[in-house]
Amino acid sequence: MSAILIIEQILNGLQFGVMLFLMAAGLTLIFGVMGLINLAHGSFYMVGAFAAAAVAGVTGSFLLALIAALIVAALAGAMVEMVVIRRLYASDHLDQVLATFALILIFSEGTRWIFGSFPLYLNTPATLSGPVTLPGGIQYPLYRLALIAVGLAVWGGLWWLIERTRIGIQIRAGENDREMIAALGIDISRLYTLIFALGAALAGLAGALVGTIQSVQVGMGEPVLILAFVCIVIGGIGSIKGAFIGAILVGLTSTLGGIFLPELFKVFTDPATAQAAGASLASMSIYILMSLVLIWRPTGLFGARA
C-alpha cells in the first residue's frame, strides 16, 4: 500500500470527521445545555440537504443553496423548539425520545410529500471541482479540501462564540445552572430557542455540503445521527472541543479501518473472506473505540466529571 494512498485516506477521514462535527456540535450543545435527547436532529440534516438541492436546482447557485440550507434548517429548529420541545424540558428522557422519534416520522413523510420519493442531487460548484495537487504530488479533490476548511472554520467560530461572547457566557451558565441565570433576568426560553436553531443550522449545513458527495434522499439523516451520538459520547457531552476530537477520531477510525483491516485479514485468509471480515470489523471499530474510551473515562475525553 503506497504512502500516497494512505495520505489520501487520512484526508478522507478528516473530511468525514469534520462533517460529523457539524452534526455533533449542535447535538452536544442541545444535550449539554438543555439536557434534551433530540433524536430528530438528523431530520435537520435532511431538511438542509433538500433545501439546498431545491434552491440550487432553481437558481444554479451553490452559495445560495448553502444559505438556504442554513436558514431553512434554523427556522425548522426554532419552530420545533417552540412548538414541541419547549413542553418536554420537565419530562423524563423517555418522553423526549418518543416525541423526537415522532418528529423523525413527521419530517420524513413531510419531505416525501413535498419532494417525492426519488433522490435529488447537488452538483459540485465549478470553482471547487476537479483535483488539486498537494505536496508530494498527491492529487486530491478540491471540494473535499474545502469541506475540511469549512469544518475547521466552524470549529473556530463556535469556540469564539462560546468562549469570547456574551451569548457564549449565557450558554455556559445555562449548562451549569439554568435556574440561576433565569433568576438573574436572562430569558431562558429565548436562549434555548437560539441554541436549538444554531444546532439545527449546523446540521442543515452539513447536509447541504454532503449533498454533492451522496444523493439527497429521505431518511439520510438517521445513520449520521447515530455516528454523531458516538462522537459526543467519546468527546464528552456538552463539550465542543470534545465533539470535534470525537468526530475526527470516528472519521479516521471508520475510514482507515475500512482500508487497512481487509488488508490485514488477507495475511490470514483468502481475499474474499478478508474483505468481508475486514469490512464487518471496520463498521464495528468506532463502537469498539467508544467502549474503550468509556472504560478509561466514563464521562468522555473532555466531559465534566460529576
Rank of each mutant, 00 (worst) to 15 (best):
A3C: 00
A3F: 12
N12E: 03
L14K: 01
F16K: 11
G17W: 06
L22W: 01
M23Y: 12
M23C: 09
G26R: 11
T28N: 00
V33E: 06
H41M: 06
M46E: 05
A49P: 10
A56H: 09
A65R: 03
I67K: 05
I67F: 14
V80N: 04
V83F: 11
L88T: 13
A90I: 14
L94T: 14
V97T: 12
A99D: 05
T100C: 03
L103F: 06
F107G: 05
F107K: 03
E109S: 15
F118N: 04
F118Y: 13
N123D: 14
A126Y: 13
S129W: 09
P131M: 08
V132M: 06
V132K: 02
I138F: 04
Q139D: 13
P141K: 05
L142N: 07
Y143G: 09
G151M: 02
W160Y: 14
E163S: 09
T165M: 14
R166F: 12
I169V: 15
D177N: 11
M180D: 08
A183I: 00
L184N: 07
L191Y: 11
L191G: 05
T193E: 02
I195L: 08
A197K: 10
A201T: 10
L202Q: 01
A206V: 12
V210P: 01
G211C: 03
T212G: 09
I213T: 14
S215E: 11
V218G: 07
M220S: 08
L225E: 02
L227H: 04
C231M: 13
V233M: 04
I234V: 15
G235D: 05
G236K: 10
G238V: 03
I240N: 00
I240G: 00
G242V: 15
F244T: 04
V250E: 01
T253G: 00
T253D: 07
G258L: 05
L261W: 03
K266L: 04
P271Y: 08
Q275S: 12
A277K: 03
A277N: 03
S280Y: 05
A282Q: 07
S285V: 10
I286G: 00
M290C: 10
M290N: 02
L294A: 04
L294M: 11
W296E: 02
P298Q: 03
F302T: 10
R305T: 13
